[in-house]
Design a protein around this nucleic acid. Structure first.
Lengths: 200, 200
DNA sequence: ATCTGACTACCTACCGGACGGTAGGTGAAT
DNA sequence: ATTCACCTACCGTCCGGTAGGTAGTCAGAT
């Protein structure tokens, strides 16, 4: 551990960054871009508002990082689920992907749900990085849907774009009604996947 | 013209209210509760901000009316579509209801899409009237889904609550991706209804 | 062993502007 | 004379962001 001291410094730095992002994610999830204020975030972290500017250049930079983190987390979870079920029955892969998406959405702090709530930024357009990260994740589903249609697990005569928008909209909409005490994620994943791709 | 003048006055009054609500709906749709400001609304209407308080008691009152109008409009559209297809094949009724929902969502000014965007109010809880209007509309779908499951047009083994949340989430999510030049509502309604209830 | 200077991770104090809302006035119509 | 449908002017509060200071850490020079 020769680099220990350097690492400690950077860990501390990252610790503060992470703490700020954690609270920002929670506030963004609960109120969206315009309701989440730097004052609230700073107060939750336990520092003064101006100190946020030591770690970030602007509010938008904080939001951007939260949103991208959230999407990337779901992305990686779904990719991992698909890798684990490689070669399995198509319906199983669909269920695994839906399960991974829902689990990431409702299990990863508030990042992922914040990233859904905050699809509109304050001033000007959505940053390019956010659009890119989103698109990359959508591509995973584009690929999966094509695969499932080819395998006959999803009806080939359905328009893939409509299918993807429909499914992702339904899954992301769960942030509005999902309550852990009322639903179980594995049960929901099974419900949804069998609805789209019934066992015959 | 004794009645006519009185009518004119009331028409004018309603005209102003309606104009305010129209612009409020547009701004709420585009930015949600916290981004839509009374100054912007007033400026769009062409009056001073303080004059809004002649017609409404508070910002929340304006938002409440927009949101309820929006939900009620979809509600009535779907109920009408179901009345028109009474006795028809279950799959046809499902498609008619989905079509009515989508058409109302993307065709009725900005009220309905605003009501989806604004599910969180500024301070305190969502007004009771809003919750009631929402619940009433959900009940329409509760009834339709029960009917379709009984008729075998939707799989009876799917949990009705999950089914309803899934479908309404998918339909409402269309506000994020629907563009009139890229999709046709009747095509989407057919896609979605056949996806859930395929012709065999 | 001690001083120095850079760097880190905050702080206090303040800025101009926008927010929702209020007070009180005004001209036209009834 | 009263009511309607607006107006101007203003309130206190909060917004994101900036300026500039400071205690603590630590490497390297003296």
């Amino acid at each position: 551990m020769s680099i220990a001291t350097a690492k400690d410094t950077r860990d501390t730095e990252r610790g503060s960054r992470r703490l700020i992002l954690d609270h920002a994610a929670r506030l963004l999830r609960n109120g969206g871009y315009h309701r989440a204020t730097l004052r609230e975030i700073a107060e939750a972290v336990g520092i003064r508002k101006a100190s946020l500017y030591y770690h970030f250049a602007s509010k938008e930079e904080i939001v951007e990082e939260v949103v991208n983190d959230g999407v990337r987390f779901v992305h990686e979870a779904v990719v991992a689920a698909l890798a684990e079920t490689e070669g399995a029955a198509p319906r199983e892969r669909l269920e695994a992907a839906i399960h991974a998406h829902l689990a990431a959405l409702h299990g990863h702090g508030d990042y992922t749900s914040a990233s859904i709530k905050v699809f509109t930024f304050g001033a000007g357009p959505v940053p390019e990085s956010v659009r890119a990260v989103r698109r990359a994740y959508e591509d995973v589903w584009r690929g999966l849907i094509a695969e499932l249609q080819q395998a006959g697990a999803l009806p080939a005569e359905r328009a893939p774009d409509a299918l993807r928008n429909f499914l992702l909209g339904a899954l992301n909409g769960s942030t509005d009604w999902y309550r852990p005490e009322r639903f179980r994620i594995d049960a929901l994943a099974r419900e949804f996947s069998e609805l789209l791709s019934p066992a015959r």
